[in-house]
Design a protein around this nucleic acid. Structure first.
Lengths: 114, 114
DNA sequence: TATTATACCTAGAAGATCAAGGTATTAATA
DNA sequence: TATTAATACCTTGATCTTCTAGGTATAATA
């Protein structure tokens, strides 16, 4: 495929960077937020998410810092970097190309992304 | 995830069953057809496609038969079964749910599938 | 004749995801 | 108060998908 399914799965990277572009978030929060926003379509497992976040950090797309929330519990927050923002733009482009291609093949017509 | 990425990858199954629902096709033809229809977004490798077709056959979604094309070369044609057609309906549903969920998360709005 | 395109295949590697476990803190319940 | 559930982080090993890289053989083209 032209679309790189390698490097962090189908849309995983796109979803995570999108959320982090809005605000800093910690791992557990990301799982709950994705579940909520997608009406439970996305149910990331911790065993999936944490390694991905570590990889994102190694790749320079995000950085992390420890902080205490309202609860008093230490959390590891992730913040998107400039490099991560660039990657996000690229991922969005790829997603649009990909989803339009699928729709074209299955006959579901374009439903063009404005 | 709720969407089963297991059992034959993200949209691979959907794409193959869609093409086979239109007409019987042989492997090499499927690769070229997907490449053409998607403006080269999809470039399935033979090492990817053939094992998947064999699995589809084992699962009862397709059956195969040998036939000579115009050229005189033997080709292995795949034909969708009733079970395959049922699965295709399911896959289409899942794709719509999945792509809408992604769009919702990334803020790209619904672009609802009519 | 040699090369390219067609047409099928497999084995091994790489990568993504999950299942299943672990630890520790806080909140809710019995 | 004791126990359970929820929060919050993590890793290891297994599984599944896909790709790389090979192999074989025929037909068309240069």
């Amino acid at each position: 495929m032209k679309i790189d399914k390698g490097l962090l799965g189908g849309s995983t990277l796109l979803l995570l960077l999108s959320l982090l572009a809005e605000s800093d978030r910690y791992g557990y929060e990301i799982i709950k937020e994705l579940e909520h926003r997608s009406d439970s379509t996305f149910q990331f497992k911790e065993g999936t998410l944490y390694p991905v976040l570590h990889k994102l950090e190694n790749n320079g797309y995000v950085r992390s810092y420890m902080a205490k929330g309202d609860a008093g519990k230490e959390r590891k927050y992730y913040q998107i970097t400039n490099q991560g923002k660039k990657q996000l733009v690229e991922e969005k482009k790829q997603w649009q190309i990909y989803s339009m291609a699928v729709n074209k093949v299955i006959g579901g017509d374009a439903h063009a992304f404005a």
